[in-house]
């Protein structure tokens, strides 16, 4: 599975996602047309039920559209089999969830190593990649700790390391700061901004957290499944010196 370089990273065309109901159907996404280029730091914002997570699911190849198309890294999501979708996720997409969802019986190192095991990467390369990822999130000294020995912020940083260890082209983060206090949220976001800058990793958030929204360079506002605004903003003052 290769990544074509010419086309945009993500392109949706007249994307519709509807769920059958007893009477009629519930439209979660209504003719969404969006394009994301490599290296973007963008967010889907809006109230609950606006379609943020549904769009993230489709872009992450966890779900398929009802109508229209979603092209991610050159792959038409609506045509992928389960195995092909899993292959796309394993190679090119990293996920960060609302809670860290680390494997409790494994060490920090082993948790971060897991996506590379799925990829079948040789052990020597794996070890180096995990060390690099832990250094990026400044947790190199906690490699042998268990998740239970970490704070909430540290655990979420391990989850970020796990998402970016395979150097994915795209990281999808669903409310990544929802369970964190302001200070930890700031650190997490700084980490993600730095990764976006250093690795050119595209970050796409689903959030209604103002702390996150303030750091986004592009904000797509959804309401009732439709895009109601798509705006680009400057980086926040706290991240001065950052250049996209």
């Amino acid at each position: 599975m290769t990544t074509p370089s010419e086309s945009p990273l993500i392109r949706t065309r007249d994307l519709v996602k509807a769920y059958p109901m007893e009477q009629g159907r519930l439209v979660a996404l209504n003719r969404v047309n969006l394009t994301f280029e490599k290296g973007e730091f963008a967010g889907l914002v809006g109230p609950s039920g606006s379609g943020k997570t549904t769009l993230l699911n489709i872009v992450g190849s966890l779900d398929q559209p009802t109508e229209g198309s979603a092209e991610v890294l050159g792959h038409r999501i609506e045509t992928l089999s389960h195995a092909e979708a899993a292959e796309l996720r394993s190679r090119h997409i990293g996920f960060i969830f609302q809670t860290h969802n680390l494997f409790p019986v494994y060490t920090v190192f082993e948790n971060v190593e897991f996506p590379l095991l799925v990829l079948g990467m040789p052990a020597a390369l794996r070890t180096q990649a995990v060390r690099d990822a832990l250094d990026w999130v400044k947790l190199g000294d906690r490699a042998n700790s268990k998740p239970a020995q970490l704070s909430g912020g540290q655990s979420q940083r391990v989850a970020i390391a796990r998402a970016i260890v395979k150097r994915p082209a795209l990281v999808l983060a669903d409310e990544p700061t929802a369970n964190l206090d302001a200070e930890n949220s700031r650190r997490i976001l700084e980490t993600m901004v730095q990764l976006n800058r250093d690795l050119q990793t595209t970050f796409l958030f689903a959030t209604h957290d103002d702390k996150v929204i303030r750091h986004l360079r592009r904000t797509i506002r959804l309401n009732d499944g439709s895009v109601v605004a798509d705006t680009s903003t400057e980086p926040t003052p706290q991240l001065a010196g950052y250049r996209p």
Partner: peptide
């Protein structure tokens, strides 16, 4: 359940 979900999300095939 959580572990299996994460593994599926990270691209481990169901099979």
């Amino acid at each position: 359940y959580g572990e299996i979900g994460v593994r599926l999300a990270f691209g481990e095939d169901k099979g």
